[in-house]
Design a protein around this nucleic acid. Structure first.
Lengths: 414, 414
DNA sequence: TAGAGTTGTTTTAAGCCTTGAACCAATGGG
DNA sequence: CCCATTGGTTCAAGGCTTAAAACAACTCTA
């Protein structure tokens, strides 16, 4: 009925430290006084907490700032080199890996194409391991300095003692990806659905900055969403929450690849749009690389809408359905903001956003619609990698620290 | 980005006290040792916290229990007479008021019919005030002993310095119900949407006991839902979350009274079902009391399904749509349990639950569907009153104590 | 140029809190 | 009657936050 951590006086300090660190991280650089105001802690406590963080090397003093007529403020900043985090985006056609410093500046990246015919989990695990090795070597960073690796996968992640992945995209059913990857690397691993990681990226650094409740709609070949409340991702009972793509918007509607019919994804996913267009892939499509095909095909369709009434009508209807799906989210969640992203979402959104907004307004209740705004994502194609990297970063900001990697204490703190 | 209360060592005690109180409240009576195990606090701390609660009169010692071969456990219990809470359910045809002791045993109740032609907010406010006066007099309880009054209303409650209500049911637009009621009473008031209060009742004492994430589907004349995560109601940015009834399940479907079309409510709300049945009200219907009409009309329809294929088909389709709507919730929220309640929900559910489950299974993804169970509510018709009473009780368990009623400290703690 | 004013940070002392360990209390069994 | 067992309390230690006082580092003014 009620969540509570242990209630000792030391936990208090941990919480307060975490509070200061979050506050500083998202508003850098800042003085102690600012932090005191932002966290509600007394100046004395901020001094104490900051001393610890300085001693640990997580925070550094970074110059000072004049105050009118008084002692200058000493500015504090996070030390980017204190530690590093890696993000991995397991996409439909490629695995992308990024290595970032503590402020999420990219230090190296790598990309491994996946043969769509061969989505074996072990192939993916090997690609991830290779990518991690490559970025570490490339940036010349000691693995010991890596705080953790976040891995975004297309599918439902069952969090347990070892993460297990279920995903229709790869026909994965209970794939023990964590165990497979353990064969190749010792780094601390964190798995999450890629819509959720992308949502976190937009929330922290993109169109959702400063917002406390949001819905991130991710539209690619398929459709997903990330629900954010109280500043963090909502996972539900078994962390599969946010399966927006397979909510029904047309009872007895088009058949969907999930087996049901009338799913949102069967109308606004890129695959479905192209399919509805009756589209043979465009002539210049490289065979055997479906989503890239899709990307160019969808771009072609959007371009064609300028002259072709058929294409224009199809897109208009897509906007109608997408707005309707968004309206459902608005009614159910009452979010402060709705963020549309994913490659197809951005491609469509550039042109259709007004129509989407209009449709959403028509299908949602006045009150929650007035309280929200519908925006496009701003982080671009690498956001899934960045989002994955926020997983270990989040744990770090919450107080997890580097230690012997597989110690029970560490895993428990995760 | 991150919620935090102030972090002093006294807050720690408040939190721990609250933790012990919650733990005891939902598992009465219990020994100190039990509480220590349940809260994770040391026996010494439990002793300290319990001493405070005993001194305050909130908790009493209630006999003892043998332990095999050692000192008997002293059982602790909540003192029912420490304070009282009231619940108010503002329904479509009546205002119901209940007065409860601290353990939510009913001490008195009252009911005031509302003339459907006259839903003026002031009429409602006066009925609430009369009801409160009546139950207090009836039970012979000093208003000073009332910890608070919870009021469930059909509509969106805008929580601010004074609660304001928007509701299509009564054609209320920004009605300052709290201010109106303040003219009649001095008691501490708490307003909330009635679907949310009902959800809390089922969560605490009904089909949702012990569950951490749930969706409570409330089906009456209209349709609503209450989303529960982490053991408490999800409110969203402006506390209008859960407007499930107006999510679209049939693009371009039946017109809904909200102005949109294809809403779930236009298919599975009692009004809509009867309307689809082409129903003139049954002959014995009392004029001018629509929902009671609806109740008997719907009951008649359900009974007619035994012999009439038309009625049976209509109900089958209703189950299909309701299951579909529930499937959407399951996909989006991944709840541990789905609870169907509301008078129409219970009426239909008794007969249609298997069909509803089947439909929900067909329209939701395997993984989240397997993680949930769909049940009927168990609390019966007064649950909205009980649920409303949980509002002040929740605050009490969280540490709000009786004090000068309008003090800033009290309001801030709310 | 010295002192006064201002603003930012740290030190100090007081007051709470939780807890492990030791201890007391209350029972059943031998 | 003594001992083992179990439940609950006391005590001293160790930590934490904080208000208030002190200190530090400036600017401004006379």
């Amino acid at each position: 009925m009620r969540d509570r951590r242990r209630g000792t006086v030391r936990d208090l300090r941990r919480e307060n430290t975490s509070s200061v660190l979050w506050s500083l991280y998202f508003s850098r650089p800042r003085s102690r006084q600012d932090l005191s105001a932002a966290t509600g802690l007394s100046p004395a406590s901020v001094t104490n907490v900051v001393r610890d963080l300085l001693d640990e090397g997580i925070v550094t003093e970074a110059g000072s700032q004049d105050s009118d007529g008084g002692r200058p403020r000493v500015l504090l900043d996070v030390d980017p080199g204190y530690g590093f985090v890696a993000g991995v985006d397991v996409g439909e056609t490629r695995v992308r890996v990024g290595l970032f410093d503590l402020t999420l500046a990219e230090r190296a990246k790598a990309e491994y194409p996946l043969d769509p015919a061969e989505h074996g989990a072990d192939v993916v695990a090997r690609a991830i391991a290779d990518g991690l090795r490559a970025v570490l070597a490339d940036a010349g960073i000691d693995p010991e300095a890596v705080l953790g690796v976040g891995i975004g996968v297309p599918g439902i992640v069952e969090q347990g003692s070892e993460a297990v992945v279920h995903g229709q995209t790869f026909q994965w059913d209970a794939v023990p990806l964590e165990r497979l990857l353990r064969a190749y690397t010792d780094l601390p691993l964190h798995f999450e659905n890629c819509a959720k990681t992308t949502g976190q990226a937009e929330l922290w650094f993109g169109a959702g900055r400063g917002v406390r409740s949001a819905v991130v709609a991710l539209i690619g070949s398929g459709v997903g969403a990330s629900l954010i409340s109280g500043g963090s991702i909502y996972r539900g009972a078994t962390s599969s929450a946010g399966e927006w793509g397979h909510t029904t918007i047309v009872a007895d509607g088009r058949r969907c690849r999930c087996g049901s019919s009338g799913c949102l994804e069967a109308y606004v996913g890129a695959e479905a749009i192209l399919d509805r267009f009756g589209g043979a892939p465009p002539p210049n499509a490289a065979p055997g690389n479906a989503p890239d095909d899709e990307e160019s095909a969808l771009a072609a369709l959007v371009a064609a809408a300028e002259s072709s009434p058929t294409a224009a009508a199809l897109l208009a209807q897509t906007a109608e359905y997408l707005g309707l799906g968004i309206a459902n989210l608005i009614n159910l969640f009452n979010p402060e903001r709705v963020i549309v992203c994913g490659w197809a979402g951005l491609l469509l959104g550039g042109r259709l956003l007004p129509a989407i907004r209009e449709s959403a307004g028509r299908h949602s209740l006045r009150h929650p619609f007035a309280a929200t705004s519908i925006e496009l994502g701003v982080l671009g194609p690498d956001e899934a990698v960045l989002g994955a990297a926020t997983l270990p970063l989040e744990l770090f900001l919450n107080g997890a620290r580097r230690r012997s990697r597989h110690s029970p204490a560490y895993r428990a703190s995760v």
